[in-house]
């Protein structure tokens, strides 16, 4: 533990009212546990008494005063997980790692802990390994989970997930789909809208692949020209309320409804890559 590192973490939270839990969380992320000297430093620096900091650190289960291993294995012991066999899963982890819950393996690789409920009761028994959730865990899967973790969970998931993120959008006024399956761009249905700029009028096809900026249009549009977008079905203007987030652009945004929920907004300036995707938003 370095004194300067802890002090800089504490000072970072100065302007947020010395949020004690945020400070402790960050220290814990850095060292995987809360060293006693760090707690003392937090108390001194924030003007709290040592016992206040200590009582917060011992109150929350997510804080640990003992060094944790490289990987943190949480086995849910909530009621739903319990009746579906979480105790057996916990025993199996304890047997394979040869530690009791709350302990760390001698090689400092794994820390086994139990939690009371993760709120994912329908998926039980749930095991969380370094923030990766495993659902419906049986004792037979314990070994493969441990092997996967040793091999590196982040690598495994990135390699397995090669899906493209394709948006299916519709008009915010008539809710008619804007997708054109007959003219695919980037291998998936394109988004077809009507556009008008500088006296010209015609169709425009956008790639539905998120992150791709491929565009096809009926007529050539001058780069940096601001274009008006219309729904090809109800002819409503697809202009959103906000402006492009890029400071050098500030052109009006074009908004469309994402079928899976949310709103996507793209910049109406030709060649500008400003866009906003809000999967929780509902308004236009």
């Amino acid at each position: 533990m370095k004194k300067e590192e802890v002090l800089s973490i504490i000072d970072k939270h100065r302007d947020q009212g010395d949020g004690l839990i945020s400070v402790l969380e960050e220290i814990q992320t850095k060292y995987s546990y809360l060293p006693a000297e760090a707690l003392k430093l937090v108390a001194e620096r924030t003007g709290r008494s040592a016992v206040d900091v200590y009582s917060v650190a011992t109150f929350y289960r997510s804080f640990s005063l003992k060094p944790r291993g490289k990987h943190l294995c949480l086995v849910c012991q909530g009621t739903a997980c319990h009746v579906r066999g979480a105790p057996q899963v916990e025993k199996e982890f304890a047997r394979q790692l040869q530690v009791q819950p709350g302990e760390t393996t001698p090689d400092r690789e794994f820390t086994l802990e139990t939690v009371n409920c993760l709120g994912a009761c329908a998926l039980g028994p749930v095991v969380v390994m370094d923030g990766h959730y495993f659902s419906n865990v049986r004792t037979s899967r314990v070994k493969s989970i441990l092997d996967k973790t040793r091999a590196g969970l982040d690598d495994a998931e990135l390699k397995a997930d090669l899906r493209d993120f394709v948006l299916t959008v519709s008009c915010p006024r008539c809710n008619h789909s804007l997708m054109d399956p007959h003219h695919p761009i980037d291998g998936s249905p394109s988004i077809k809208v009507t556009v008008a700029t500088e006296g010209e009028h015609g169709w425009l096809r956008l790639s539905a692949l998120y992150g791709s900026f491929t565009v096809e249009s009926e007529f050539g549009i001058r780069t940096d020209a601001v274009v008006d977008f219309f729904c090809p079905h109800c002819h409503a203007v697809l202009k959103g309320a906000s402006l492009c987030p890029l400071p050098q652009c500030r052109a009006p945004m074009v908004s469309m409804i994402v079928r899976a929920g949310g709103v996507v907004q793209i910049c109406s300036r030709r060649g500008c890559k400003g866009h906003m995707l809000d999967l929780n938003g509902s308004g236009v």
Partner: peptide, 9 residues
């Protein structure tokens, strides 16, 4: 003094 306090839960 604030020497003692509650610990744990």
């Amino acid at each position: 003094a604030k020497a003692i306090g509650f610990r744990g839960r």
